[in-house]
């Protein structure tokens, strides 16, 4: 068991609940899936074992039993029993040991995985908290006691391969289903000019500020299905990127769709930072 002593925005996330979109259920899951998988592989967990998605390193907990933990994603300094561990280390917490994270030098979301995974009831096959629909376990709060699951396999003797730090500023983007709704100048602007992340990292979507993208046609688009990483452009011409808890349909045209890796990277861009979209296959 892990006893939570203090927590900012901390959610339990796995790889989400794909397969229920036709019932109006968002996929949800870790905002940076590559980071969750990397942390789990280091501990010998299944790729999708539930872990803690910690915003800006705001977490303090105590191990009530001996556990093995590791951190991936935003490299928040990890202090366990008074000792600071290097990023990516697999750390043994003896029973009674306290773990405290600090603000990471870059990125937004860190994934604290525990060997055996966080053991919580699944909703529609997933332990992910979905901020849009409210499905899944509630946000983690001070005073919570989190059960740890039984380990399922051996711990790897060497670090499993995992991606290094993302370059959050360059996001690979594929042509979207409605790029023909935009002028060629708008497409060129979208693929060359920087955009600034405007608000707090939101799992539903991240708004960007930058040059306005003009439409080549008027009229409204009938709502249609969207995926994580879709870059939708509302009438004000400022794009937004859909995150893991996006609604299953969107009502504005999608100019481009991020690659899976770029969607992961976009989950680490802080408000005020800039991104550029790099075209792939336009």
């Amino acid at each position: 068991m892990l006893r939570v002593l203090d927590a900012g925005l901390v959610l339990i996330e796995d790889l989400g609940r794909a397969g229920h979109a036709s019932s109006g259920v968002p996929v949800s899951g870790a905002a940076d899936q590559g980071a969750l998988v990397a942390a789990n592989r280091r501990l010998g967990n299944p790729d999708g074992a539930p872990a803690l998605e910690v915003m800006l390193g705001q977490l303090h907990l105590r191990a009530e039993q001996e556990v093995l933990v590791t951190l991936a994603g935003a490299p928040a300094p990890l202090r366990a029993d008074g000792m600071v561990h290097p990023p990516g280390a697999v750390v043994m917490l003896p029973a009674g040991a306290e773990l405290m994270l600090r603000t990471p030098p870059w990125g937004l979301r860190s994934y604290l995985a525990v060997r055996g995974g966080i053991d919580v009831p699944r909703v529609l096959g997933s332990a992910s908290h979905d901020v849009l629909s409210g499905l899944g376990p509630p946000p983690v709060q001070a005073g919570d006691v989190l059960a740890v699951g039984a380990p399922t396999g051996p711990v790897p003797t060497a670090d499993a391969d995992h991606p290094g730090p993302h370059t959050p500023f360059l996001l690979d983007v594929l042509p979207g289903p409605r790029r023909d709704w935009f002028t060629s100048e708008a497409v060129e602007t979208f693929l060359s000019e920087p955009y600034t992340v405007t608000d707090t990292g939101d799992r539903v979507g991240v708004r960007l500020d930058g040059p306005v993208l003009e439409r080549a046609r008027s009229g409204e688009l009938a709502s249609e299905g969207v995926v994580r990483g879709s870059v939708q452009v509302p009438p004000d011409g400022k794009p937004l990127i859909f995150g893991p808890d996006h609604p299953v349909t969107g009502g504005y045209p999608v100019i481009g769709v991020l690659t899976e890796a770029a969607a992961d990277a976009s989950a680490q861009v802080r408000p005020g930072q800039q991104v550029r979209f790099r075209h792939r296959g336009w």
Partner: peptide, 14 residues
Amino acid sequence: VIDVVPAARTVLLT
């Protein structure tokens, strides 16, 4: 096919 999202005039297939 993992997910199907019918909408007014489109079907999204994941």
